[in-house]
Amino acid sequence: MQNMDNIYLITDIPGYTPQISRLLSMMNYARHTTLEAVKGLALEQLDELLDPQSNSIGALLLHFAAVEYAYQVVTFEKRELTEEELAEWGPALDLGDAGRANIKGHDLQFYLDKFEQVRTRTFDLFKTVDDEWLYRQEEFWYGKQGNHYFMWFHVFEDEINHRGQIRLIRKRLRS
Rank of each mutant, 00 (worst) to 15 (best):
R100M: 03
T75Y: 09
Q19Y: 13
H106I: 03
I10Q: 09
G15A: 08
Y71K: 13
E132G: 12
L125F: 11
R79I: 06
Y29V: 03
F153W: 11
F150H: 14
G96M: 10
A37Q: 00
A42R: 00
L24F: 05
A65S: 15
Q165A: 10
T82S: 15
G99Q: 01
V38F: 00
K39W: 06
N102Q: 15
E157F: 06
G90K: 01
L134H: 07
P52Y: 06
T128M: 11
L41Y: 00
T128A: 13
L86V: 09
G146F: 06
W89P: 00
F153Y: 15
R163T: 06
L62M: 14
A98R: 05
T122N: 09
T82D: 02
D5H: 12
V155S: 00
N161I: 09
I13K: 06
E48W: 03
I13P: 03
D94G: 08
S21P: 06
S25H: 03
F64P: 00
V67R: 01
A101M: 10
K104L: 11
D5G: 10
E36S: 09
F126C: 04
I10F: 11
V129F: 06
V38N: 00
A59K: 02
Q45E: 13
W133I: 04
G143H: 13
I7H: 01
M26E: 10
R167M: 15
A101G: 07
E139I: 15
G96E: 11
E48D: 07
Q109M: 05
V118W: 02
I103H: 01
M4F: 15
M4P: 03
R79D: 07
Y111D: 04
Q19W: 11
Y29K: 02
D130W: 08
T128P: 05
W141D: 13
Y8R: 13
D5V: 10
L46E: 02
S175K: 10
D107V: 03
M26W: 07
A70N: 06
T120R: 13
P52R: 05
A37N: 02
N147Q: 09
T82I: 10
V38K: 01
I20V: 15
N6C: 12
V74D: 11
G143Q: 12
D51L: 08
V74A: 11
L23A: 03
E36P: 00
F126L: 08
L173T: 02
F140K: 13
V74Q: 11
D113I: 04
L41N: 00
A30M: 05
P52I: 08
F140S: 15
Q117I: 10
H148Q: 12
R163V: 01
S21I: 04
V38A: 00
